[in-house]
Design a protein around this nucleic acid. Structure first.
Lengths: 252, 252
DNA sequence: GCCTGTCAATGGTATAACATTTAAAATGAC
DNA sequence: GTCATTTTAAATGTTATACCATTGACAGGC
């Protein structure tokens, strides 16, 4: 049992880089370095074949990787080709959604994440908002109070209000994460069994209190009030579950 | 200017699904539905060719998609093949990192996200921790106080402490997001120009205060103290920058 | 002016062959 | 018998070639 020291670290682990990985890395670096602007075209597949000496199959596999990562988009046809894009919120949402699904995370986890992120967004919105953004937030909350809205329209308007607050936070990362919580993960809330005049009034009033704090640039108050609001919402959604959670495709 | 009503919505937009996308969707659904356990093997490429009627190239492109998504892994060789995997923290970190890089987000955004997530993790750790987890957290903080540690070792031990707190939170999603902030995004903090006995003592003491709250299962106190701690750290790192931020590969 | 078809470049797909990698299994030295 | 070595089979990795499908500009007919 002596001298059983697993592996003498004489030479390092050699990892054989696959050719399509190498090309993907190279292209990714080029794009992320900013050498190519968003919207610009990359060389065509056949040109890349020439330039790299690889086969078209390998080139295409590399391109597929970058496409999943949200960095490029391929379109057929003359004047089509490969264009550079920016990963958007929905690509982030897809990733988070799969992460959650594949690990069978309980709904509690997503709810906690939402309760973490949303108040922070309100706080930063209070700190960074412009007058225009404040006006937009107020207007959306007023639209929310329209009793003519059906349940679906009310839910959508509600989401738009929350998104507007997120926008005003000037933090695109947290905004994207919130988006991921809402879209990539649960469709449950949109079903929202509860819908009554009382609840709508309560939501509108809660929003109004948050708005007040945002208007006053009082970050701490905005956070506190948003936190209370989001937690209140949970009371409705977490009655049933504790179960695994169902996923809805982003309706997009 | 009459009759310019853009498009009579007579028939819907037709989108041609590419074959590799279809196959990727199908396989993804199968995996996420749990029909195949993690570690199990998928049919080999050639078997998939047979079963689907597609070419091997298309099958491989589909597999490449799932590989980027972290759902499978391909290995060559007999008894190799395609095995089902779970997306891990680092795959999430990669995605977040690219999101941040490609949008040229300022360092402020990441710092804000960290300051949002970390206190929440402390709070949930206080609520959900077991005694074993608490003991581990305490032990790591004591190890941190060893003056024999060089700068690098200290930094690593520090990260391990924060990770231990995250683990105890029982929220794998927020934990993964914190991991993404630390690894996928900035290598800057690891450089940490500041390192003195005073700072180390301050860090140790701040950790101790958080631990106290976690031990007492006082979620609000844990959050508050962790928030103060993380903000204090920022004071050091945000002196220089305001610039775009540099990215470091996760050192694995 | 507005249809309508032609055209050329591009991505999408199929096929066939060869190269490389991997670990089990067979072989051989002692 | 046991250990080291070689063989081998099955899987992914890679290349080459050909053809199909899609798209948007452009020119010509009415």
């Amino acid at each position: 049992m002596q001298e059983t020291q697993k592996s003498p670290p004489l030479i390092e682990r050699i990892s054989v880089q696959k050719s399509y990985d190498l090309l993907a890395d190279q292209l990714r670096d080029t794009i992320l370095a900013g050498d190519i602007d968003v919207g610009d075209r990359l060389p065509s597949e056949r040109e890349l074949v020439e330039q790299t000496g690889l086969s078209r199959g390998s080139v295409r596999e590399a391109l597929r990787i970058l496409e999943v990562e949200g960095l490029i988009r391929s379109r057929p046809g003359r004047y089509g080709g490969i264009t550079v894009t920016q990963p958007d919120n929905s690509s982030m949402a897809r990733m988070v959604g799969q992460f959650v699904r594949s690990r069978r995370m309980p709904l509690r986890v997503i709810q906690e994440a939402r309760e973490t992120i949303e108040p922070a967004l309100a706080r930063y919105a209070a700190m960074h908002r412009t007058d225009e953004e404040l006006a937009a937030i107020i207007e959306l909350n007023e639209a929310l109070a329209d009793p003519a809205l059906d349940r679906r329209a009310f839910a959508e308007m509600n989401i738009r209000w929350h998104n507007a607050v997120a926008e005003a936070s000037r933090n695109d990362l947290l905004t994207a994460l919130l988006y991921a919580m809402n879209h990539g993960v649960v469709a449950a809330t949109s079903e929202e069994v509860y819908d009554s005049a009382e609840i709508r009034a309560a939501v509108h009033a809660a929003h109004a209190r948050v708005i007040e704090a945002i208007a006053a640039r009082d970050g701490d108050a905005a956070r506190r009030r948003m936190e209370r609001h989001v937690r209140a919402t949970r009371a409705h959604t977490t009655d049933l579950e504790d179960s695994e959670l169902e996923i809805g495709e982003p309706d997009e």
